[in-house]
Write a protein that binds this DNA or RNA. Structure first.
Lengths: 105, 105
DNA sequence: GATGGCGCTTACCTTTTGGTATGTTCTACC
DNA sequence: GGTAGAACATACCAAAAGGTAAGCGCCATC
């Protein structure tokens, strides 16, 4: 049986939003406001917070296009990419069990 | 690209402890105190809370052996088993990146 | 010239989550 | 007879996380 590395993963993707954010960055560089729309329900304040933390952990890179009005996008690093892949099964599990879980709430 | 089911999974395993608890239940029925020892660092109050929620979501079953002093154990349901399997990649990811992540903190 | 969008920041407040400490009932052990 | 351990319950408290609301500098559009 593999040793438990969940503590490590959870230290990065812990919290309500990070997994969702990462998921929505799979298609390449994405602008702040676009991420916000895709994730849905998250406030700007919280989104920036989470993005900063992910950048600090080298999961994302922030690219400021130095334009005005501002254009900034966020991209998964290769490291972040491996994380997202580890998230895929959970994503699929959720889809397969959406109805069942909804009934229980 | 698969639709995002992370919201569903997160509604079940959200929080600091649930993934860890599930992980440590992989080897079959486990007693309360044994879970506590395996997880490590969790208080009794919080552990019971989490276990109750997992039982309510049909991820675990609680078996009270009707003995005194009390003997109670918790077991993954088949449903819970599928969830744990979806957690495995994250677990492995954590192991592979433990050193790297530790450096960043 | 008011409005709206961009990517934020700040201050403040509420909710959620987790932690500590203590108590309970009963048995086994020293 | 004092202690320890089983599986909790309860009360209280601290910390973390998240949400709300406002504002900012600048530009484009109506």
């Amino acid at each position: 049986m593999t040793q438990c590395g969940l503590d490590v993963s959870l230290s990065i993707i812990g919290g309500k939003w990070k997994p969702l954010i990462l998921y929505h960055l799979q298609d390449g560089p994405t602008r702040f406001s676009e991420i916000r729309r895709r994730v849905g329900g998250i406030s700007e304040k919280v989104l920036i917070q989470q993005l900063r933390e992910l950048v600090a952990m080298n999961v994302l890179v922030r690219h400021d296009h130095q334009q005005v009005p501002p254009v900034v996008d966020y991209t998964l690093t290769p490291f972040g990419g491996t994380l997202v892949q580890a998230l895929v099964p959970l994503c699929e599990w959720g889809n397969q069990n959406r109805a069942r879980v909804a009934d229980m709430l």
